[in-house]
Design a protein around this nucleic acid. Structure first.
Length: 573
RNA sequence: CGGGGCGUGGCUCAGCCCGGUAGAGCGCCUGCUUCGGGAGCAGGAGGCCGAAGGUUCAAAUCCUUUCGCCCCGACCA
């Protein structure tokens, strides 16, 4: 391609709203252009990178016998109603009506369509296990898109789906996908920055999941890691080792005056107790089985609530913090809440530490008073006792006791063991070797292409611009032509070189613009192709051109006749 | 959905508090000079100041409403 007529432009400055390096560079290099919040056009350079990423994805999927298909972006509501997600998923799904008034939606994922396809095309265990993938647009109406390409509303996803007759078949493909994903991230140049963690299954449902996290301080997810045994999990599901509780004999409950003492910190100071001897209350309104319930969670004062764990424990589809009015309505008091004596229809969920411990300081459900020696089971009856703790740095690992650490990460891929939720919903089953119908066991595996592109920039740039890994660079070679007002064949020499390189299978961007050298060099650095070749009169007089790798400082004069060979070996390294 | 910020030419921004009919740099076009790391000079194109309404002789500027965008939080693959 010729830069002079390429449909793009570079910018000296990034738009003010771009905060992440990847966003700034993608804008400055002219890879993308926003149309609306979280909705982008890909310009030629950006699109080429996207295509190269997609090609890697294709190759790695095909390598594990996963065939490519394409499913629709607009779906009728009925398949989503069958799986229950038409109502389970909220405003994140963009819904619309067709001219006949039928409910439709834009695809946020494709489990429903996939299960429907499986119903039609998979009939026998002999066809299993099998899998297919697609590279397709998804739309999720995020309440808040941000970070350039990191979190968008319209995006491209490589999503794969597997089917098997039993758990063993699922485990095999799940393992294949796991390995294929690591291959993808390695080839994309992110190998060292990827961590695989255990994760929540979220709206997908299912029995197990892993996320592939790109380590980055701007990440939206918190990863919990153990340096001792290698345990890694998303904070949403991470567990920690509970210390042994020495169960004191329950003592008599006692009310104490604690005016203006609404925080755990204040209570501890006033009553001279440590935070782990207190019980705190957290209030939510949760939608459970299509009913709004008041959920009263109780945790030890030194612990934070993990909302994902709570949501999963009570099987809520939606949850929000309650208002002060709602708290008073159940007989409690903001800042002085405890489960002692709250209304009967309140769902009381306590953390294990509260259920097993004794004699906690808790609120008295009235302004200015707390209770001493509160005991779960004696003073109130929990509906559920489970792990609700948000694991933090410094807590002991649940497997080996080593102090855990936290890291921030961006989720670039995920793999889910879905089970038969979606296949059951559409009646997709197969006959096993005994002629008996068994449900299809499904898995789903996603990689966000745009997000992957952004992460590649995040980990491959310097102060001058992007430094693309060869595998995903928009072009392998960027030829800078330096011709003055009295050209001496520089452009012709460069064009000839371009043809020769292209003939050898190397893609070339040629900067044939009438710009000064500085402008061209700076744009070349910004765009970040792996190899830069400068063709100017200075070298041509000696029959050479200058070759420089984007990732290195050194420049090399190479005889024109040797350039193709030289570039070939450079790119091969 | 809560909190905060911002909408002035393609990009970065000034002007707004204290109303008087729009500016700078970069980019773009033309010419001359320059020519291996974001050149200089001269000339030029381009903006109903996000939109609507109001106040006023007069609104980018003040008031109201609205739309859009960004950031933090809530939420979420």
């Amino acid at each position: 391609m010729r830069l002079s007529t390429l449909f793009t432009q570079t910018y000296r400055e990034a738009p003010a709203e771009a905060e992440l390096i990847s966003h700034q560079l993608a804008m400055r290099a002219g890879l993308i252009r926003p149309l609306a919040a979280g909705i982008f056009s890909y310009l030629p350079l950006g699109f080429r990178v996207k295509q190269k990423i997609e090609q890697i994805l294709r190759e790695e999927m095909l390598a594990i016998d996963c065939a490519e298909i394409v499913m629709p972006v607009v779906h009728p509501s009925d398949i989503w109603e069958a799986s229950g997600r038409w109502s389970d998923v909220g405003a994140e799904m963009l819904r619309l009506k067709d001219r006949a008034g039928r409910d439709m939606c834009l695809a946020m994922t494709h489990e429903e369509v996939m299960a429907d396809l499986a119903r039609h095309f998979i009939h026998s265990y002999r066809q299993l296990p099998t899998s297919v993938f697609q590279i397709q647009t998804k739309f999720r109406d995020e309440p808040r898109s941000r970070g350039g390409l990191i979190r968008v509303r319209e995006f491209t996803m490589k999503d794969a789906y597997s089917f098997s007759a039993d758990q063993d078949g699922l485990d095999k493909i799940y393992g294949d996908m796991f390995k294929a994903y690591l291959m993808v991230f390695n080839r994309a140049g992110l190998g060292d920055d990827i961590r695989v963690v255990e994760s929540d299954t979220g709206m997908m449902g299912g029995s197990g999941a892993h996320e592939f996290m790109f380590l980055n301080d701007a990440g939206e997810d918190t990863l919990i890691e153990c340096g001792g045994c290698g345990y890694k999990a998303n904070r949403q599901v991470a567990t920690h080792q509970r210390e042994k509780v020495e169960a004191d004999a329950p003592e008599a409950i006692e009310e104490v005056a604690t005016p203006d003492t609404t925080t755990i910190e204040d209570v501890c100071r006033l009553l001279d107790v440590s935070a782990d001897r207190t019980a705190k209350a957290i209030f939510h309104i949760a939608r459970i089985e299509d009913e709004d319930r008041f959920v009263f969670s109780v945790l030890r004062g030194d612990h934070e609530l993990n909302e994902t764990k709570l949501t999963n424990a009570i099987k809520a589809t939606e949850m929000r913090p309650s208002t002060e009015e709602e708290i008073r309505a159940i007989g409690s008091e903001p800042g002085y809440g405890s489960a002692v004596g709250v209304k009967a229809d309140v769902l009381i969920v306590v953390d294990t530490a509260i259920a097993e411990g004794t004699n906690f300081v808790a609120g008295a459900n009235k302004d200015g008073f707390h209770l001493k020696n509160v005991n779960s089971g004696r003073d109130f009856t929990p509906d559920l006792a489970t792990d609700l703790v948000a694991v933090d740095a410094g807590m002991p690992c649940s497997h080996c006791g080593t102090s855990l650490t936290t890291t921030r990460g961006i989720e670039v891929g995920n793999i889910f063991k879905l089970g038969s939720k979606y296949t059951d919903a559409v009646g997709a089953s197969v006959l096993d070797e005994n002629g008996k119908a068994v449900p299809l066991v499904m898995g789903s595996y996603g990689i966000g292409v745009d997000r992957l592109l952004a992460c590649i920039i995040e980990s491959n740039h310097d102060e001058n611009g992007i430094v693309w890994p060869v595998a995903v660079a928009p072009f392998s070679v960027h030829i800078v032509v330096l011709a003055g007002k009295q050209p001496k064949g520089e452009l012709e020499a460069a064009e000839k070189l371009k043809c020769e390189l292209e003939a050898s299978g190397v893609d070339v961007l040629i900067d044939d613009r009438e710009e000064r050298a500085g402008v061209k060099f700076n744009d070349a650095d910004l765009i970040g192709c792996p190899v830069r070749i400068t063709v100017g009169s200075r070298g041509l007089e000696n029959g050479t051109v200058e070759v420089k790798r984007r990732a290195a400082e050194e420049k090399e004069d190479v005889a024109v006749d040797d350039v193709v060979k030289h570039v070939g070996s450079t790119l091969g390294n």
